[in-house]
C-alpha cells in the first residue's frame, strides 16, 4: 500500500491555449482533510474534474492508493470508492430521499433484468441509518426532493456521498448557496467524516470554514499549486497572500 490515498504528478489540463491546470503535484494522506482554495478561475474545479474523470486530462498521472488510474468518467471513479458532491446537485427532484440516495445502484429484492423488483424497505432503512450516521435531519423521507430547502437537498447529496464513499470524498463548494444554519449542518457532517477517518478534498471560498475543518490547505493560482500549508502553520492573511499572488511565485511541491 502506498502512503498516499491520492497522488497526482504533473497533472495538466489545457482548453485550447488556456492552461487551466498546469503541472499540479498533489498528495493526500489517509484520513487527511485537505482544502483547495484559490480565486475564481484558479483551477480548483478543473483539478477536481480531472481526478473524478468528468474531463480527461491533457497530461500527467493520477495514482489512487499507489496504482495509476485512468477514470473514463465519474462512474468509473465512483466504482473505485471516490464519491463527489458536485456544485450542481446530482439529484432527481421528483424522487424521494431513499430513491435519490440509491440512484443508479438500487437495492434489488428479486432480479428480473430491467424489471427487477426494488427492495424499498431495505433502501428506506439504510437511508435512515445513513442519515443518522451523518447526523442529517430530514423531516420526511417519503416527500420528494423538490419540496426541500437548498440545505436539505445538499445534505441528501452529502449523505449519499458519505454513505457510499469508502475511500475518498470530494466536495465542490458544498455550502456556497446555503444559509448559516444549513452551513453549520454540512460542516458537522464533514467533522463526522473526519472522525470516521474518511479522507476529504474540500473546495471552498470560505476561509473561516477552511480553518475550522481541514488539516491542510492547498492554494491554487492561475492553474498552478502555489502553496500547501498545514493549518497550524498559517493564518488567514498568509493564505490570502498566496491566493492574490503577493507570496508564492514559486511552485510548491506537496
Amino acid at each position: 500500500m502506498s502512503e498516499f490515498v491520492l497522488e497526482t504528478r504533473g497533472l495538466s489540463k489545457h482548453y485550447g491555449g488556456v492552461h487551466a491546470l498546469d503541472d499540479a503535484n498533489f498528495a493526500l494522506r489517509p484520513g487527511e482533510h485537505v482544502a483547495v482554495v484559490g480565486d475564481n478561475g484558479a483551477g480548483k474545479s478543473t483539478f477536481v474534474r480531472q481526478i473524478t474523470g468528468v474531463e480527461q486530462r491533457t497530461a500527467g498521472q493520477i495514482f489512487f492508493h499507489g496504482s495509476e488510474v485512468h477514470f473514463s468518467g465519474p462512474i468509473a471513479a465512483r466504482d473505485h470508492g471516490i464519491e463527489t458532491v458536485f456544485q450542481n446537485l446530482a439529484l432527481a427532484d421528483d424522487l424521494d430521499v431513499p430513491s435519490n440516495l440509491f440512484l443508479g445502484r438500487e437495492l434489488i429484492k428479486l432480479r428480473l433484468g430491467p424489471f427487477s423488483i426494488l427492495d424499498r424497505k431495505s433502501m428506506r432503512q439504510q437511508t435512515e441509518q445513513a442519515l443518522v450516521k451523518t447526523a442529517v435531519k430530514i423531516p420526511n423521507l417519503t416527500s420528494t426532493i423538490r419540496n426541500m430547502s437548498g440545505g436539505q437537498r445538499q445534505c441528501v447529496a452529502i449523505a449519499r456521498a458519505a454513505h457510499f464513499a469508502s475511500k475518498l470524498i470530494i466536495m465542490d463548494e458544498p455550502t456556497a448557496a446555503l444559509g448559516v444554519q444549513e452551513t453549520a449542518q454540512v460542516e458537522n457532517i464533514i467533522r463526522g467524516l473526519k472522525e470516521q477517518g474518511v479522507p476529504l478534498i474540500l473546495i471552498s471560498h470560505n476561509l473561516r470554514q477552511v480553518f475550522d475543518l481541514v488539516d491542510r490547505i492547498v492554494v491554487f493560482r492561475r492553474g498552478r499549486i502555489v502553496a500547501s500549508l498545514n493549518r497550524e502553520e498559517t493564518d488567514g492573511n498568509d493564505i490570502v497572500s498566496y491566493i492574490t499572488g503577493v507570496k508564492g511565485n514559486e511552485d510548491a511541491y506537496v
Binding site: 446530482a90 421528483d94 424522487l95 440512484l103 438500487e106 428480473l112 424489471f115 427487477s116 423488483i117
Partner: peptide
C-alpha cells in the same frame, strides 16, 4: 421495479441519472 424508478429519475433530471 427498477424500470419505473429509472423512468422517473431520467424524466426528473437526466444529467443526474447519467452521473449516477
Amino acid at each position: 421495479t427498477v424500470y419505473g424508478k429509472r423512468c422517473y429519475a431520467i424524466g426528473s433530471n437526466e444529467a443526474a441519472a447519467r452521473m449516477s
